[in-house]
Every structure is written in C-alpha cells, then in structure tokens.
Design a protein around this nucleic acid. Sequence first.
DNA 1: CTTGACCTTAAAGTGCACTTCAGGGTGTAG
DNA 2: CTACACCCTGAAGTGCACTTTAAGGTCAAG
Lengths: 134, 134
Amino acid sequence: MLNIGKAAREGGVSVEAMRYYEQQGLIAAPDRDANGYRKYSADAVRRVRFIKRAQDVGFTLRDIGDLLSLQADSGASCGDVRDRARTKLGEIDDKIVVLTRMRDVLATWTDACPSEGPVSECPIFDALERDDET
Amino acid sequence: MLNIGKAAREGGVSVEAMRYYEQQGLIAAPDRDANGYRKYSADAVRRVRFIKRAQDVGFTLRDIGDLLSLQADSGASCGDVRDRARTKLGEIDDKIVVLTRMRDVLATWTDACPSEGPVSECPIFDALERDDET
DNA sequence: CTTGACCTTAAAGTGCACTTCAGGGTGTAG
DNA sequence: CTACACCCTGAAGTGCACTTTAAGGTCAAG
C-alpha cells in the first residue's frame, strides 16, 4: 500500500491529478489509514497507469471512463475495445490531415517569402488578406 | 460601410467573435453610426479576414496580435514574418509527430485485437496496464 | 522541538477562443 | 401594431485537465 505521493510517482501523474481522477470517478475512493491519508493498492496504481497510458495515445478522460466501464463489464468483448480504439484512430487521423494542410500552406508561404523587403510587399501578408482561398 | 452582422459574414467569423477581437485589441474599435451600431470599413473587414486566415493555418490570437503589429511596423521586414511562419511550421510539425506516434500505437493495438473474446483477455487492455513502455 | 516533507479539504484559477445569458434598444415589412 | 431580425452592454459560462491557493494536520530526522 502506497500513499498518494508514491502512487502518483508510480502511475506517472501528479498528486493533484490523482485526486482529480478520484473526484471524476475514474478511480475509486481509496481506503484511508488512521491519519486520513489515502492508501493505494497495486491494483489502484495499475488503474492510474491505465489512465495515463490511454491519455498518452489520445483518449480523453471521458473516453477513458468509457473504457474503464467496458473493462468492468463482463458482457463486453474485445471487439468493443477495438471499436473505441478505431474511432480514436480516426479522430487522430482527422487531426493529422488538418495539421498537414496547415503545414503545407505555411511551407508554401515561407518558400515564397524573401527575407528582404518591407512587410507591405510580403507575400504571406498578401495571402492572409486576399479574397480568394488558399 | 457594413454593420457587424455583414462584416462578420464577409470575414467568415461570428458576430460574437468580432466583438471579442475588438475587446482583445486585434481590431480597432470601429466608428458607430447614430444608433450606436458598429460600422466597418472594407479595410476593417480585410483585417478580420486576415485574423481568420491566420487562425486557419494555426496561429493563435496572441500570435496574430504579433503579426498585426509587425504589419504596422515600418521597420519590420518580410523576413520577420517568415520567421513567425517558420516557427509555427515547426510547432505544427511537432504536433504531427506526436499524433503520428499515437496513431501508430493505436493501429498496432487494433491490429492485435481479435473482435471476439472477453475484455479480460484484450491485448489493448493488457498494453494499457503493463509496466513497460509502448 | 523545530524543520521540512508529506498529507488533508474546498474552492478558485488557468489557457484558449469564444458562446451564452440577461436585459434592453432599433428598424422595417406586413 | 406587431412580429422579427438585427443591434447594444457586461458578465458569466463552456470544455478540458488539471493547477493553484488557502488554511490547515502528520510524521520522521536531527
């Protein structure tokens, strides 16, 4: 059994994040010892790590709550989990597409811009003000 | 001269966004007509479009304030603008790298996951709880 | 016996870019 | 005359995931 500081370190999150997850219902309220300190089991720490890992691959805390209830649901199948992962994969791909478009526009612009010359003749500013698209 | 509704439509933003930009100092407080309605010049609308376009390629409103002051600065050069664009390009590339890593991990996991089988044996959940990395 | 690192709580603040709300005035078409 | 779309203000709310603040209690080392 670890106190909150060590459990947080093990889970790779901050102490405040631990209390936040508890408040949000992502981790169960842990038992307390005599002085009122929270005490975490290895299982609880594993759950924190689960949350952290899931976040690292793009799941929001809301998504993670859903994943955790799936984990607790004996009627749920591996395919349900895979569906969530695929959906997230799609969302991330969408973001990458948007960012890549931005990236390409910026690259075009920086290539078109001479370092010299007044801003009044800057092709980037021109592009930002024009009526048409791009 | 357009009232706020038309100016917003021309600029591609909401009326509320227009007032917000004004409050944030990104667009000058416009003249008002007799009834107190804001009246926007073609120049003002161009500035709104500038803000919108810059946002669309990833600049924050803070960045845009910086760009706009560059535009007003006779001592600034095209190279200064290009530097801002390059910096933003780098930031976007960083985000793409992070998202691509997430994407790849999720793709690996969804490939490893059989649709059948209980969640207790789900390789995705295994990966989320394990001690080691990936 | 004090210093310092730890723990407790509830509530408020952060960043970003708005959006919504409450409560009102204006202008025109039917 | 009344409906309706438009305009005004200031303040509060949104989403996300915390972080910070204020005001304490606990515990081991020196």
